[in-house]
Design a protein around this nucleic acid. Structure first.
Lengths: 216, 216, 216, 216
DNA sequence: CATGAATGAGCATTCATTCAT
DNA sequence: CATGAATGAATGCTCATTCAT
């Protein structure tokens, strides 16, 4: 947690520091982010930084937490406001919420993605251990889906939660880096993915053609 | 490309340099890999390094290319040797081939994954732009599957290629970091994923319960 | 000297500052003691510190002086209360008094030892120049011992005073760092040392063996 | 150990670095010595320093080892060349040898003293653990003295070894800091101390005056 | 073609002290 | 008189790259 000295700063200064830090962590990852660049861009003395924050990790943790809070608020809007009727409908809405978050706060989204993709597991555990894990939301939804018999009960829950999370990340990355989707395209996009999850991509119109196919 | 001086070296030396570099890039990522450590471990002079390679990136590129070649050889074994009978069967075999690669060359696998997950897009473009992209294999298979009517022809090809690649990465990561699968478990694992791709996870045993569900 | 603002503080605060400073100077030496840590532990504002004390050295001086006063009080107890009968008896009692001080106020003892062992002579002169020197006690005793003909009058007074002080320090260090003496053992210890001072370690039982020995 | 890069340097450069380092460690202690100052004074690049030495401690260790070697050579001259006839004679010569060392290499002498007086026991163990301990020489001599019946056999060996070492340090310090002795004075000085060790300072001319004195 | 010394900017972090409020 | 933000030089150490021999 940042020290009180940080929170006691004038709002302008607080915001500038946060903004600059977000820029830095979004452009570089945790390891390669530079306190030197941050203090220079934020126009504060090097010593001041360490009066606001314990160390680099302290700042990073704070940024991650704020980002996760914001992201979670997008998801909770969906979870809270909605009457659950069907797993796939909810899933679609969650994905859309995430995409909205990524559209509105692309840098925060990148920072979170960065950490999630990181190989530094001790860092991940230290940072993400604290925050309420977003993955929980997906797991809970999956369980509800099974309860409701929307989803086949012979699936591997752990595996599917992992896949949902992975796809989630993939979707966001696809969105953020590879194409410049507008919201409409993104929606279509998500429809496709949820449809994949629901029914697969097997051509159901055609008949089984040969014996071998029965096994696949 | 490494300079000729590199390729003219005795094979022992070449191999040692490659081996040491693989170790370094697998343990640290591109940014944090240290030429200092590499030359020390490879027991070559600092100056020699820069007579073999243009710079750090040159070496990295070379390692990545060799890794991709090796990985591709695993995939091409499947593609070439096999009589195509069914998309999902082939997909499963590709995934298995990748997993074999990861089992036999875990460090190369990690290095490739690392780059694929990287946010440094200019780096990615520079490095991966050159190599024959592994993703092509998946795209070609997908097209064959549609031709063969194994797969519904109304899917978004680009999107699904991307998803296949993403899941591919996820699977490998799950395999490499999160659990200690043996080959048998891995196979079951892949079965699950391909089944997901094929039929989705919707509970097909139950009847439609309410009107709304018809839309999802 | 601390400023008046310091002495006007409520006693609780004064004591806390002193206590915290003693902890700091005992754990780190003067150079490595940190005002940052002190103000944090003492729960006072950084600025306040500099309203109580001129600077770091001012605080240090104060702590040293208080420590020396306390140590001196242990010695003066011996000197005052006691009827002088014999040099070696008094010496032993002084050493014991010092050890009592070290037992009761180990941190103060360490701080004093630290300064005495320091190489920063300008610091030593600046700090110890002011205080009434504990060594004086030993010197006065030595003179009394010569007057009383307990001690041979052909010894070098300055040298022996210095040696007494050095041994004094050594004893305390041996006591504080190297072994965990209880008081009884410490007493035996001191007996040995005083005996050394009194009669030396020459084997008096044996006869002179050869001519050369006469000269040593 | 310094790296080969260091020993391969031209002698001039090696000597300058050593000289500068000795100056630094003699003026400041290990903790407060500054690599920045050293590289500046030695006129080498910061990066070069770390190509010569592993780190600050590596340099320090090297300096200490060289200093101990030199000091030991003074002592071994005495031990080797001399026919042992009497403990106190040998002791005197050892003290004189140390003083010669201190006169010829005052800075090295200070550096060694500094470490010996340090409270950082883990540092001491790490650094001094390697070198042949000079104290051994004193202990061996003491044992020889007892064997030879020069010294009373009822003394506490461990304690006396410690005292000999302490006095040794004290003498050197006295010599180095407090007065400017010439060699002649120093010799007299040592005579006094050895005499103290031999016979103590009790006035042997006078008769026991009272009962109490019998016990002291 | 091999060598390895030289370089200086860069890193995160700590420090004692000042000063406006 | 209390406060605590501001300061910038200092710390030990690592880095990729250059270049003279």
């Amino acid at each position: 947690m940042p020290k009180n000295t940080f929170f006691n700063l004038p709002k302008d200064k607080i915001n500038k520091i946060i903004e600059v830090s977000i820029d830095e962590f979004a452009e570089y990852s945790y390891n390669n982010a530079s306190i030197n660049r941050i203090v220079e861009a934020a126009d504060i003395a090097k010593g001041s930084f360490y009066q606001y924050f314990e160390d680099k990790k302290d700042l990073y943790k704070y940024i991650i937490e704020e980002a996760e809070k914001k992201k979670l608020s997008y998801l909770m809007d969906v979870v809270d406001k909605q009457y659950y009727s069907n797993y796939f409908k909810s899933l679609k809405e969650l994905y859309l919420a995430e995409m909205k978050f990524a559209m509105n706060s692309p840098k925060l989204s990148i920072i979170i993605l960065d950490l999630e993709k990181s190989n530094d597991n001790s860092l991940k555990r230290e940072i993400l251990g604290d925050t309420y894990n977003v993955n929980k939301v997906y797991e809970e939804l999956l369980l509800k889906g099974i309860d409701n018999r929307d989803i086949s009960d012979d699936i591997d829950i752990k595996l599917n939660t992992f896949l949902l999370g992975s796809l989630n990340i993939s979707i966001l990355e696809y969105y953020m880096y590879e194409v410049n989707l507008d919201f409409e395209q993104a929606t279509k996009y998500i429809d496709n993915i949820v449809e994949l999850f629901k029914n697969g991509i097997k051509d159901k119109k055609r008949l089984v053609r040969n014996v071998e196919d029965r096994f696949y």
